[in-house]
Design a protein around this nucleic acid. Structure first.
Length: 321
DNA sequence: TACAAGGAGTGAA
DNA sequence: TTCACTCCTTGTA
């Protein structure tokens, strides 16, 4: 699944211009302590939207960057020209933005005449935006919603809210946005978001802003990556599980392959997988008991079975791709 | 206590 | 009719 990371084109440049290095430093310092901040109080460092227009969304992006890369306490270079997880330096937290292309003899200038710092900032921007867009792509597929929030039905809006709350550990908005469709949602100001959700409305508004910015640049992947979840067809549980398995960076903590060739996978966090499935199907009461019952229905149909050596939470696709 | 297995009823598409 | 949700019982680790 070659998801594209189209870079910065889709997001307004004004939102990507990073402020002085103090902002970057703040963000990176947060990354450095991020590994120790992943306890129950994760909301403490959830990305906060800009408090002032001068601050800009860049700070928010950096916070987002913090969150993404602290999520599994590892650095995964993303975006154009990025390397894989395996190729990462051993101690990334000390210098998460590394310009490996910089001329050996010059630490001041990077290619293109930019200072090393500016070049690094651009790299951070690319990585962050690429990661944001990938998250949007993933959400679009998992939730079976379009990339353009304007097109969302009230049901789609609820899915998006649930997913965003879950993904970014935001306080629940309850029924505050219940009757709204995508068009109405997009027309709301940040203040209106705050009125409906005093605790997380501003962050939700910022996230929606990113979504609104993304479709123009994401037409390529939205059009090119047609699969079961984007086709408008109801998704089956086994398809959903495969989709999660295809996104190890996002969902590897919840479900992962034990033997991809044989189709053997393990549900690492049964509650989270069930919750994601519940969000996807608009079944808030979904739990692992019910999900596993549905999985067991696949035994008879020859879609999923227990592996030869049965283990708890381990299943096997009968016909692995 | 959590998970596995399976029966059975229900409702939506 | 199919599919998944839901509730249930029983058994196992």
């Amino acid at each position: 699944m070659g998801s594209a990371s189209p870079g910065l084109s889709g997001v307004p440049t004004s939102r990507l211009l990073l402020p002085p290095d103090t902002v970057l430093r703040t963000g990176l310092e947060k990354v450095a302590v991020g590994a120790g901040a992943m306890g129950p109080e994760r909301r403490d460092w959830s990305p906060s939207p800009p408090a002032t227009p001068e601050q800009g969304l860049s700070t928010f992006y950096l916070s987002y960057f913090d969150m993404l890369y602290s999520e599994d306490n590892s650095w995964v270079a993303k975006g154009p020209g990025a390397s894989t997880r395996e190729e990462l330096p051993d101690e990334p937290e000390q210098c998460p933005v590394i310009d490996s292309q910089a001329p050996g003899g010059s630490l001041d200038l990077a290619p293109g005449g930019l200072t090393l710092e500016e070049h690094s900032l651009e790299q951070v921007q690319s990585m962050v935006v690429g990661e944001v867009l990938k998250d949007i792509e993933t959400a679009c597929k998992l939730l079976n919603i379009t990339a353009d929030p304007v097109d969302w039905s009230p049901g789609n809006v609820q899915k998006w809210l649930l997913w965003t709350e879950h993904q970014y550990r935001l306080p629940s908005v309850g029924k505050a946005f219940q009757e709204l469709g995508g068009k109405e949602l997009c027309a709301m100001s940040e203040e209106q978001f705050r009125q409906r959700s005093p605790l997380g409305g501003d962050v939700l508004h910022a996230h929606l802003d990113i979504w609104k910015s993304a479709p123009t640049s994401e037409e390529s992947w939205a059009d090119s990556e047609v699969d079961s979840s984007c086709s408008g067809q109801p998704i089956h549980l086994w398809q959903f599980l495969k989709e999660l398995l295809l996104k190890p960076h996002s969902y590897g903590r919840f479900i992962r392959w034990l033997n991809k060739e044989k189709g053997i996978f393990k549900i690492e966090d049964s509650a989270q997988v069930a919750r994601l499935w519940g969000i996807r199907k608009n079944r808030p009461a979904m739990n692992y008991d019910k999900l596993s019952r549905s999985i067991r229905q696949y035994y008879k149909k020859g879609i999923i079975r227990k592996p030869d050596i049965s283990q708890r939470l381990v299943y096997q696709f009968v016909h692995p791709v």
